[in-house]
Design a protein around this nucleic acid. Structure first.
Lengths: 274, 274
DNA sequence: CGAGTACTTGATGGTAGTCAAAATCAGTGG
DNA sequence: CCACTGATTTTGACTACCATCAAGTACTCG
């Protein structure tokens, strides 16, 4: 109901041999292989430079394509090199639950290790470039590169902490605070990736945001509008401009509407001037 | 405000040598050491029997004691051998968020790997027996016991999947459905541990349950009462008897109160007969 | 037995969900 | 290029669920 045209896409027969640029470009001038060092940098973990023995294959996905699906046998972890995705769980009644929006530097697919099949599915929200990490290789890195061992566990721990923070958000914050946090999160991620942290386009629908935050799409839309009228952000469809990141950071609950009327009166001329 | 008397407790000087029963019993006849095989069994992961080279120290905690605290330097993972605990996160305003109730066979402390300090704190809800796994030893097991490598990652993946399921629960279910799920979860865990799955005592307060489920303690109490009157369970303070596990499993939302009046009329004689 | 904590139950209000309709956007094919 | 279709977004009106406040009861433990 949500998604338009989904299509599966499995990697071409995977050879772990050295890069073979002759191997028929899957898509024009996309980077096809990355070294271990490059993957570590992407994941923001320290890597001893020099000994580049492993090469990891890239794969391109178009918006709407699935990277992996629920129940599919697990054999691969993924690292986002570029693009935006969403990871969803589907419950017994077929309801989707968005669990995250992997972007550059994020690893996904970790949930598949437990039962040797993926518990979630991940879909590209834009054209994406994803690095494939065969799990056997990943696990073996701890043996072949002992200095990486701790970092490997750290990457998995990071995902756990992320989910824990999400539970905290869902369990205790108001709708407005959740949306505010979401914007702060996006702002920070975009900054880290070298883009503007104050001006960006959402890659996901209100529906997906709401689902992720445990809200309805209407509530998300209304909250964006409210933030807009009090001057915290400007929003036009998917285009966001963040005016007051600090207020978003500390926002717990919007003042009640009669009080808000004053704030609007103050905010409007300011917005008009800008 | 929630907790009564908390006290820190650090392990006695930790020696990784062979068990020394002469080393002055920390508490009378508690098991002080476990082999690698025993720990694997506890964690429900396959372990090649035989070569028992590692021994892991146990530690006893009394109800109310903290096993680890937020910000404390991370060096240890924990596996519950017996007893009940809670893991909580504390946000910038000092609000607690209960993240889980570790019990027999659960590993906790994993969140500490990421930043080399614990992101959560874990408190004993009852007297507990906990196995200490020094992280360095844990991580090294992948090297020394390659057949364990996948299982080690699987244990971490399992925790991630658990949190993901929690996000799904918080994000999409009604109060009644959350409480129902919680009871099903407890029932299943008690069964697995060899206790009755239909008759057990809660080890946590309504406050803690509510916090865990993103509800208030009053809502939890009311929901228990509602389940009681329609005959799904019997509840008396902390004592629970599950009468209809299947209904709890599939419950999404309680029927509106006028319909419920009929169900009560039907349920009451049955409850009186029992 | 008394003090403090935990639990139950009731009354009330606010937050966010639901239903609905209109406006805007994206993509398609004529 | 533009009309057309379907998806997305906005906004409004209404409602239900659950939080809040409050009071009373039942446990627990020193």
């Amino acid at each position: 109901m949500l998604t338009t045209q989904l299509s599966d896409a499995r990697p071409a027969p995977l050879s772990l041999a050295t890069p073979s640029p002759s191997g028929a470009a899957w898509q024009r001038q996309a980077k096809l292989w990355s070294s271990l060092k490059e993957v570590c940098d992407l994941l923001r973990i320290p890597a001893k430079l020099g000994t580049d023995d492993f090469q990891f294959q890239h794969m391109q996905f178009k918006a709407g394509q699935r990277i992996h699906t629920i129940g599919q046998p697990f054999d691969m972890l993924y690292v986002v090199n570029s693009g935006f995705l969403k990871t969803v769980m589907i419950d017994e009644l077929g309801n989707e639950q968005v669990l995250g929006f992997p972007m550059k530097g994020d690893m996904f697919g970790i949930d598949g290790i437990h039962r040797k099949q993926y518990a979630t599915e991940t879909v590209a929200l834009s054209n994406c470039d994803v690095i494939l990490i065969p799990f056997k290789v990943f696990a073996g890195l701890g043996r072949s590169h002992p200095e990486l061992e701790a970092s490997i566990y750290a990457v998995m721990s990071r995902e756990l902490v992320r989910e824990q923070a999400m539970v905290g958000t869902l369990g205790s914050l108001s709708a407005e605070a959740r949306v505010a946090r979401f914007l702060v999160f996006l702002s920070e991620r975009f900054s880290e990736m070298g883009y503007s942290g104050t001006q960006f386009n959402l890659r996901m629908t209100r529906q997906e945001i709401g689902n992720y935050l445990g809200l309805t799409l209407e509530t998300v839309s209304r909250t964006f509008s409210a933030f807009n009228t009090i001057g915290l952000i400007s929003v036009d469809q998917r285009a966001i401009v963040v005016h007051d990141l600090q207020s978003l950071r500390t926002l717990r609950r919007l003042p009640p509407s009669r009080v808000r009327a004053k704030a609007e009166a103050k905010a409007k001329p300011a917005a008009a001037a800008a």
